[in-house]
Design a binder for these strands. Sequence first.
DNA 1: ATGTAAAATTCTGTATACAGAATACTTGAT
DNA 2: ATCAAGTATTCTGTATACAGAATTTTACAT
Lengths: 228, 228
Amino acid sequence: MDETGRLDWKAEGGPGPIQRTVLHDTIVSHLRDMIIEGILEPGMRLHEGQLGERLGVSRTPLREAIKFLASEGLVELTPSRGASVKRFSGKDVEDMLIVLRTLEELAGKLACQLGSDAEIAEVRALHDEMVRCYRVGDRLQYYKLNQAIHTAIVRLTQNSSLSEMHHMLQTRLKRIRFIGHEGPEKWAAAVAEHEEMIAALEARDGSRLSRILGRHLVNAWERVRDVV
Amino acid sequence: MDETGRLDWKAEGGPGPIQRTVLHDTIVSHLRDMIIEGILEPGMRLHEGQLGERLGVSRTPLREAIKFLASEGLVELTPSRGASVKRFSGKDVEDMLIVLRTLEELAGKLACQLGSDAEIAEVRALHDEMVRCYRVGDRLQYYKLNQAIHTAIVRLTQNSSLSEMHHMLQTRLKRIRFIGHEGPEKWAAAVAEHEEMIAALEARDGSRLSRILGRHLVNAWERVRDVV
DNA sequence: ATGTAAAATTCTGTATACAGAATACTTGAT
DNA sequence: ATCAAGTATTCTGTATACAGAATTTTACAT
């Protein structure tokens, strides 16, 4: 997003294969980001007119993007009253985490069976980089790599459905985790858990990885619980 | 859907509370049905012009509905080339079933803990009705009740996220199962499994229910495997 | 007959226009 | 000052209009 907030899609940056950028996708991901980052707060109404003007698009594609996000669960539609950013209760978050935990446990088992050595090495690389960010204290980058690692482990399962469901829950929870800044000792604990995860993955110990992922998620919830 | 296929939404049928029917929802569910029932075949392109005319709506709300379904995973968007009914490979279906199985196993455990006696009685009622349909040989009604039972068990968990994910997978798989007509002996086996399920639920034996649900799904897959 | 290039058509993507619902504002009564 | 009713405005929902991409058809050469 540039300073004005306007979308400059189809700005064909330099050479390379002509990549077809589609306005729809651009709007969707921008809105998603705005929701996740809290620029659009929970419960806030998505004003078609002003939001469209801000993004520099007309209402038609904007509305389509909103419908898309509604199906994704980030936005709520109310008849004759448009759309608003979906508000999650503590119970909602807890529910999501229960499901996410189950999915990650499954992913852990499958990843150890199906992941290639090269792929596992890639996850390890992400992990090492994350640890580096932890040492330096780069919270944002740490956070992103953390997500990337979980996503990568899920991807090892080669199960598109699992990836999709996981991604959906992760997206919804991003907004929460984005807020949840942990203290130093909790942060250290989280890193230690990740250390265990990678070890289990490299040992291809599915049930251990599964267990750690489950525990990790429960702990993550404990760590941010107060914020929600 | 009436004979012509046109949507007669906001046709306020008789008295009762004025129910706000929204065109968007109507289009979405109609398209969903058309996809599930195979009226719109996998891979088939969703022609905005003719589809809109057939439903009696303009392209604008139709496109919004299509975007919604795309996010739901029933429809695939291709830039400058519109939308088409998503085609699932055998691997896709298998992937979905793996996830669905995990979710149902989780649901089984939670349902036994959280379901009230009254709710469990309702599931039993659905089951009895389903068995009646089996005896009479009413396949369609049997099929619907079958789905309803699984949905009901998931609902017992009071976990909105779980319900949603389950519903999404179930919707996608409906198209498959709709095709999968089993022979008499396989059908009998499926009914027997359901019998066990209800028994476990009434005994509130979570791990047993979980196990049965898992097995049931694996068997269901075996039963329709050849069709996909 | 077959393959290719150009023209014509069809279809998608986006913007605008218009109607009706919801909301905000004004006015008047108490 | 407070509240109600009526009016004005804003906003959503749907249809239509227009531009450009993709496809099909046609015309022509080999």
